[in-house]
Design a protein around this nucleic acid. Structure first.
Lengths: 217, 217
DNA sequence: GCAGAGCGGAATGATCCGTTCCAGTGCTAA
DNA sequence: TTAGCACTGGAACGGATCATTCCGCTCTGC
């Protein structure tokens, strides 16, 4: 990990090291794309998409499960990061709506929810998930305090919204983002309006939408 | 198929024939449950859920693909049926909103969309799908004529709504229905309101959300 | 009683996929 | 220059999964 004495390069690495560092990213990116499209995709598909051999992958992760776990944990951290950025926003309503927008854009929900059940989580992930829940509750309560959030919406409705948006998917990634924004706009519009009929049925409970975390798939 | 001379029974069949007729339904019901939960589920899972042996299933369908196709076609017919019932409704707005409610309740969308790509469709299915599209357009236009539908909503937004609702899923089937109704209420509320910001991005195009029908999965 | 429709579930054969293994490549350090 | 090795591509292996077939049994219908 020392700077070394080899020839310099744009990012401070050269030759094989540079290639290896590049592969680190390429593999993670490819894994994200592939496993988001199909959580049951084979490892070889990831290697092919990344343009590397299988060895390059197995040198970095002891097994498929570890790759999945890393991917999911990254997504969870991203969620927490966006949530923390959002709570710093002064306007409680914009904090919530922009948070939803960013999380949907980054496709973080599929990462954290649809991949669950394909690996056994670490204790640290449990703590991060708990933190994510707290932040979400804080966002909803601040949004409620502004008076713009409809009164019968609860924290767990965020889960419904994210789950719904994540389901919108077409082959083209950019188009997927556009359609999701349209769909999210529909949902946010309804979360804001307070005039219509009350939402039916018991609201979603804590953990009810995270059932995949509990079974080993 | 004759009435036969065997002992009568509530539905006009007796003994083995009666059992077989019962299995017909049990297998279809089980297949619907199992493949809705996991489109890649093995055939043996269907047999187990139906409480029959694998033979009972292969006696009725030449192969897995035929079972999937039948299931999907049934769903499509159900969709068309509900749409036809809806266009008979005098109030154009209620026609659309109740149609959505019924289709979501029956989980028809998962059947027709998520199962596509697991089999090669028949020409008849193509015709029925076209008919379904026409009916959906008619429903949207009648809803628009009432003035209650937001002006920037298009027919294909129905696809977005159904796709989103179908994504809501928890292990318990009845609870799933409750949560979907809540989510659908959010969406319908926003489809009705016309005050807020316009929906962003190009609206979904015809066939854009049916891409699974085109590739062989 | 008998022929056979209908059935349960084991057996089969093919496919898929995670993981390991090995030989090649070209930095790196002395 | 050159030995050593980090890193890699991809073939090979072995286990698991699954669609489908097959066989022997039961019980109906005549």
């Amino acid at each position: 990990m020392s700077a070394g004495s080899e020839a310099p390069s744009p990012d401070g690495l050269a030759g094989r090291r540079r290639q290896a560092a590049h592969n680190d990213l390429a593999i993670l990116d490819a894994a994200r794309e592939v496993f988001l499209a199909d959580p049951k995709a084979p490892v070889s598909a990831v290697a092919k998409r990344a343009g590397v051999g299988i060895s390059a992958l197995y040198r970095r992760y002891p097994g498929k499960e570890d790759l999945l776990r890393t991917l999911c944990h990254d997504g969870l951290l991203r969620y927490v990061e966006e949530a923390e950025r959002a709570v710093a926003e002064p306007d409680g309503w914009l904090a919530l709506s922009r948070f939803l927008q960013r999380v949907v854009d980054a496709d973080v929900h599929s990462l954290t929810v649809h991949l669950a059940g394909t690996f056994t989580p670490t204790p640290e992930m449990g703590r991060d998930a708990e933190r994510a829940g707290e932040l979400a509750t804080a966002l909803v309560e601040r949004a409620r305090a502004t008076g713009r959030l409809r009164r019968d919406a609860v924290t767990q409705d965020i889960g419904l919204v994210l789950e719904g948006c994540a389901a919108i998917r077409v082959p083209d990634g950019e188009r997927t983002r556009q359609l999701r924004r349209r769909f999210l706009a529909l949902l946010i519009g309804s979360l804001e309006q307070d005039g219509g009929d009350p939402l039916p049925g018991p609201p979603p409970q804590a953990g009810e939408l995270n059932w995949r975390w509990r079974r080993q798939g």
